[in-house]
Write a protein that binds this DNA or RNA. Structure first.
Length: 459
RNA sequence: GGCCCCGUCGUCUAGUGGUCUAGGACGCAGCCCUCUCAAGGCUGAGAUCGCGGGUUCGAACCCCGCCGGGGCUACCA
């Protein structure tokens, strides 16, 4: 029975890495008929906020990465919010204490800090002194609980990197319960994984070095270890450094929705960041990903996030959407336009967008009034000729196209000599959809008045 | 500092001793198409496989060292 999970921490906006990890977990769960759980890791009382939890739900749902068990939908191992499982951690800590596998530590943060600085000054690797194990100070009430690291090799299998081995003699006794009674991540996470019967722990590479901590705890508690671990490569920023919320806006999942990235395109891109199918296929449906994904084709090195490639994939998805679906998705991005207008614009927009928000730039002239450009005499002549024929033309794209081509032919000049001045007059820009679309999308009176305004003709 | 992971075109990557004069994709350049911009088609530039030693008839692929990047080493997660 495959059971996987993600355990995001609600300490800010929903993070790109959360989506990536969720995706790999779901891919693995679906391929193996397993269960995917969402567990909220809110043990950092200072930084955690309920509204951030909502942001995680929203972003994951937007991406179609839904969970089988979670705080909002329950499940056989509820509750799924760690702040609601405090008793469980207390029991486990008490058990370790009773077994002599953990002990109370009365050291103050200042004392610990001094120890650490001392070690640093003497250039030796820092490990907690075990003062409170051997010679605890008396008359102090506030304490943390430390795990007594047994020492020796800790070995485990990583589905991506193979056999891993850590020397736990290098690991000092670490805190598992804070002085405020809350468990530390290193404690709550393995306890929950064991109790919730998580079979495969799939998470980011930043947790690779944490795994021995978790394993030692699971062993000490007498639980069965998860069948396997998988540590996914980190997503790096464009500059090769780890993505930070401050420096790199692309960590914010909400941004992608706002910009008009299609969730399925983002998923596709994320899947390809750090993994490849071994074939030349680049575009995948979700089901194809489920089928193709395997941990032995996951990259070991961190992968840099690249907007260009994402834009290309997103454009591919947009072009593959049928027109009605595109209209539907475009609506939130074009609040100034009615559905019928969007529908008429779609054929011209489709190949011109990397993301849905681009439509607004292309169609801006429909709800704003661009300033009249100053045109050369020759260009003005072209505009006047166009006005003359356009006056009697039924206002739809094909008719406009035909009559304008007539003007072009009569002029003996290239089409651009006629179309560009019109484009400038109507949109104020040098870039727009084809001129017939550009005109037809606008009410005839508006289009004509913009042309007349430039040509100096009074309506 | 210690421990761990990693290092192929700008980027994502293929590649597990000879088929590599290192393949693909994005991006970039040029051409075609064309009313602009895209899309599409074609062509092209771009990597002495981080560096230095080995092993081998032969190494991007195996071994060692070095350098570089990242992670962990918190009463953050």
């Amino acid at each position: 029975m495959v059971r996987v999970r993600i355990a995001p921490s609600p300490t800010g906006f929903a993070h790109l890495g959360t989506a990536s990890t969720a995706l790999y977990n779901i891919l693995f769960a679906r391929a193996n008929g397993g269960t995917f759980a969402l567990r909220i890791d809110d043990t950092d009382a200072e930084r955690n906020r309920p509204e951030y939890e909502l942001l995680i739900y929203e972003s994951l749902r937007w991406l179609g990465l839904d969970w089988d068990e979670g705080p909002d939908k329950g499940g056989p191992y509820a509750p799924y919010r760690q702040s609601e499982r405090l008793d469980l951690y207390k029991q486990h800590a008490a058990q370790l204490l009773a077994d002599g596998k953990a002990y109370r530590c009365y050291c103050t943060p200042e004392e610990l800090d001094a120890e650490r600085k001392q070690a640093q000054a003497e250039k030796r690797p820092y490990k907690y002194s075990r003062r409170c194990l051997t010679n605890p100070p008396t008359g102090r009430a506030e304490f943390t609980v430390r795990f007594k690291v047994p020492g020796g090799e800790v070995k485990f299998k990583d589905m991506i990197r193979g056999d891993m081995s850590f020397d736990s003699d290098l690991i000092g006794d670490f805190i598992i319960v804070k002085s405020n009674g809350y468990p530390v991540y290193q404690f709550a996470s393995p306890v929950d994984d064991a109790v919730m019967k998580i079979s495969h722990v799939i998470r980011g590479e930043e947790h690779l070095s944490n795994t021995p901590y978790h394993l030692m705890l699971i062993d000490a508690l007498g639980y069965e270890r998860p069948t396997a671990y998988a540590h996914m490569p980190l997503i790096l920023a464009k500059d090769g450094t780890k993505m930070s919320k401050r420096k790199h806006p692309e960590t914010n999942l909400a941004l992608y929705r706002e910009q008009g990235y299609l969730p399925e395109a983002l998923i596709n891109y994320l899947a390809l960041l750090g993994w490849n199918p071994g074939t030349s296929q680049e575009i995948f449906t979700f089901d194809e990903l489920v089928q193709a994904f395997s941990f032995d084709r996951v990259q070991h090195a961190g992968a840099r996030f690249d907007w260009e490639k994402l834009n290309w994939i997103n454009g591919e998805y947009i072009r593959r959407l049928d027109d009605e679906e595109l209209v539907r998705r475009l609506q939130p991005f074009l609040p100034n336009l009615d559905e019928a207008t969007i529908r008429r614009a779609v054929p011209a927009l489709k190949t011109r967008m990397a993301k849905l928000a681009d439509a607004a730039t292309l169609l801006e002239y429909l709800w704003t009034n661009p300033p009249a450009p100053a045109l050369e005499p020759e260009a003005l002549e072209r505009v006047r000729a166009a006005i003359a024929v356009l006056n009697d033309v039924p206002w739809e794209q094909q008719a406009i196209h035909d009559s304008l081509m007539g003007v072009v032919e009569k002029s003996g000049l290239g089409p651009n000599k006629t179309f560009m001045p019109i484009r400038l007059a109507v949109t104020g820009k040098k870039i727009s959809p084809p001129i017939d679309y550009t005109l037809a999308l606008l009410p005839k009176e508006v289009a004509m008045s913009r042309l007349q305004r430039v040509a100096g003709v009074t309506a």
